[in-house]
Design a binder for these strands. Structure first.
Lengths: 266, 266
DNA sequence: CGCAAATTTGAAAGGAGTCAATTCGCGTGG
DNA sequence: CCACGCGAATTGACTCCTTTCAAATTTGCG
């Protein structure tokens, strides 16, 4: 809770739009940085409006006319595609500093819904477009953001492609941790979304998600304070697990087999 | 072969850079359109250089300093990530009109290699950057392209997430067909990449790819003129197969069970 | 013509999905 | 304040599909 509050402070103290990511051509050292300059924010703030949404609120739906683009300031949003099948596949979770609602031919490509209580900035398309056309430098920073998002989606598809459930969940936890805003104090990861949302994100059944969390806990790699708070106990092992795509890690895990016979290798 | 030649004509007749995709906010009707204006091409051509590459040639490698961005004019390129595991996961195939090599903090995020003989335009970063900073309208069209690519990657991750191999391959074929340039004359799809490339793209073993192609052929959905030329025989059925994520299609396929007992539902 | 790589086929085993039952968490109402 | 009840989450048992390993066949090229 304390951590959550300090995160809010980090983001809200900016008092306006916030877009984080990585620059295209300059190296910043940090994991992600604020891409907008103070001037950018001064230009964006007046053409956008801050909106508060309750958990579960729909933001837009795939196929709708795209009237606005959104910028997450606080909370977590899921962006998903509804399959002909009826099920939904979550393409990405959006955290503070992310941009969502980029359309194609004026229509939203995906649906979006608040996973937690959320604050977003909404930018109407016409205003945003004219701002971009007049300001190539700002537009370039947004281009950087979209490229970064493109690469993030690529990382997601690596998660989805992994066969072993352990590796999927391990990667998912690493992804979550990389979005934990508080300054690296703890090894605890807050999990804002439901098990079924996780399942739709990593492409497994929700039962398998449960089992896998349990398996990681039994292995002593992570621990659970409660269902939504996991602690990373053995970071090195988590990385090993995340790295294995097939069954290759046998050689490695054999060393540890002695004390943890149960679920690792069977 | 004739078709391949006419495609070349389509692209090369433009005599310069070509970026195809969908506009962000205007609807064009067509599947994809040329995003660059004649003026754009006139500006881009002098700062880029056309390069011919043989099949299998490396274009860049993940982690390298990103000196240039590339634009595919002719042929097919695979863009892939090498996993710690050593295996490679193909993130996307790039066709004429695509852009590749967008870096993050000055480094390439992925590796790229020519799948067929290829012609690409190479743009050095400094020149491209100054052109963009001076021309917001051109930059906006490139932004549209990157957004379109973002959405394409999303579609790919839907393929990867499908459990049944039949659905993966069906979606893959549809994707391939959507990139066949000749004007919809035939139902034949040219498959430019190897089976193992397909496997790395859809996240299955190459053996499973083989078996699945065979299964589709046995079902009478597709036919093979040779290993690289497939014909779509029953388009409706292909779509049905592509749509099924779990085992739901039972109801549908039961109707057809009579004549095609083998591999559909078992 | 012959070798090497790619592709296909076969048989066996493991993991994840499905279905079904149980427990847990939490808001509601008595 | 406690009991109830609904949904989410977990657990268990079983089946099926994909992977894996191994071998045969084809393809392409020197």
């Amino acid at each position: 809770m304390d951590k959550a509050r300090s995160r809010d402070a980090d983001q809200l103290s900016l008092g306006g739009p916030s877009v984080t990511g990585r620059l295209l051509w300059a190296s910043s050292g940090a994991n992600t940085v604020q891409l907008l300059t103070d001037e950018d924010r001064a230009l964006l703030a007046p053409i956008g409006s801050a909106i508060q949404l309750k958990e579960g609120a729909k933001i837009f739906r795939q196929g709708d006319d795209a009237a606005a683009v959104f910028n997450v300031i606080h909370g977590v949003v899921k962006v998903y595609r509804t399959l002909p099948d009826g099920t939904e596949r979550i393409m990405s979770f959006m955290f503070p500093g992310d941009l969502l609602g980029l359309p194609e031919e004026g229509k939203y490509v995906l649906s979006a819904r608040a996973v937690t209580a959320v604050t977003v900035y909404r930018f109407l398309v016409p205003a945003l477009e004219s701002l971009l056309r007049a300001n190539a430098a700002l537009e370039f920073r947004l281009l950087s953001k979209v490229c970064h998002e493109l690469h993030e989606v690529g990382r997601h598809s690596v998660i989805v492609a992994r066969r072993p459930g352990l590796a999927k969940i391990a990667l998912f936890l690493q992804m979550l941790e990389s979005h934990q805003p508080a300054g690296g104090g703890t090894d605890e990861v807050y999990i804002p979304m439901s098990r079924s949302d996780i399942a739709d994100y990593v492409a497994m059944s929700s039962e398998a998600v449960s089992r896998t969390f349990r398996a990681l806990a039994d292995l002593g790699v992570i621990g659970f304070r409660d269902k939504r708070h996991a602690t990373i106990i053995d970071r090195a092992r988590l990385e090993t697990i995340a790295a294995q795509d097939r069954k290759c890690a046998k050689a490695r895990s054999d060393q540890e087999m002695g004390d943890r016979s149960g679920l690792a290798s069977t």
